[in-house]
Design a protein around this nucleic acid. Structure first.
Lengths: 204, 204
DNA sequence: AGGCAGCCATACCAGCCGGTATGGTTGGCG
DNA sequence: CGCCAACCATACCGGCTGGTATGGCTGCCT
């Protein structure tokens, strides 16, 4: 799409740019950002580095674009997961279940987010991008939890604090999962889900 | 190669090796592992790369040695911090206070641990080393918490689970602190301490 | 004395990779 | 048609850095 009005607008005019971002994201997920060079990314998208540099000004720009791919996929999957549930509490359950699963089992997700966090130590743009995503996820869980509490499906006296804590625990679990493969089993997964859920409050 | 000999036992053989490890640790903390080259490390220890390679076989060996420096400093500081308190609960308080402070305020600590975690994604030796350290910290908090519960200073029905959760939250807080500088203020620090402490149980 | 091992410096290499220079092809448009 | 802009390929550069080859110096041991 957008093949004709290829004027001087931004890079969304070209589907190739998106294809390059997708390819970069996949490669970054499997092998880490600085273990993937631009030749590989370009090749994975069916072009060469010369073309890549027509769409992106630097490797960092490619990384930022890969981040956007990550965010878009998260939105897509989280809405798909929560779409089935009716109650706000039910949505919370499946949202946490999805998050735990992606934390504990989806190694690609772990690789990418770990690399981005490490990059954020030195690059303010990457850090700002990731911070925006963290805000988005917090707003998401905050909204659901407030809904559940407002509808009487959950009892929690300090929602903001509870969500903060739950998200921090989730990040911590994701990180330690790298070093404790044993906690990635299916029964451990369910237990983790229940623990995180209970951090948000109690059922009435 | 002949790295043996040395009349006075094993690794104590050369103080220069330790000095190199210390220098490497400081540099890694300030600028990240792969933004520091071996020439700089050697120079910081007053030698050149040629000598560095007499003490260490590769850059990875230097990284591992820097990890050991990190562990040693943690032990030293945590024992110093908990030395003043008599009750087990008091020790828990100061241990958590120290951990929170180092998570939220000590940026060098954050840089180093973040880098090591990222490296652990690909290097099994580094991962094993860090996993050992995580085990050590867990054992430390587990021991204190069990003590506090056994002495009636704390009420907690599932210590293992509580410590797990507290440590996960602490890791998560450390990570998100990078993206939310506002949570690093002193009053926020105390609140964080209290929240983490309350995760371990209630006072009788 | 003299040999040897520990310790260190100098000089050098080679591969990797981000980035660039340049030129070719296509298609829309005046 | 002819021109230009979008898009892409080829070839190349140059800096950085982990790692090595080699030899010098020191002091202990026999």
């Amino acid at each position: 799409m957008a093949t004709r009005t290829r004027t001087l607008t931004t890079s969304d005019s070209s589907a190739k740019a998106e294809e390059l971002a997708q390819a970069a994201f996949e490669l970054f997920c499997s092998r880490g950002i600085d273990r993937v060079n631009l030749d590989e990314i370009a090749a994975a998208a069916g072009v060469t580095k010369g073309s890549l540099y027509w769409h992106y000004a630097s490797k960092k720009a490619v990384v930022l674009a890969a981040c956007d791919v990550y965010y878009a996929r998260w939105r897509e999957q989280i809405t798909a997961a929560t779409g089935g549930a009716e109650s706000a509490y039910g949505k919370l359950e499946v949202a946490i279940a999805y998050s735990v699963r992606s934390c504990l089992l989806d190694e690609a997700n772990r690789v990418f987010s770990t690399e981005i966090v490490a990059l954020s130590l030195y690059d303010t743009e990457v850090r700002a991008s990731w911070a925006g995503f963290l805000d988005e996820t917090e707003r998401f869980f905050l909204g659901l939890t407030h809904q559940a509490v407002g509808r009487g499906e959950l009892v929690c006296d300090d929602v903001d604090r509870a969500v903060d804590l739950m998200l921090a625990a989730m990040e911590g679990i994701k990180q330690t999962a790298l070093f404790r493969p044993q906690i990635c089993g299916p029964q451990s997964e369910q237990r983790t889900e229940r623990r995180l859920l209970s951090l948000l409050g109690d059922r009435p």
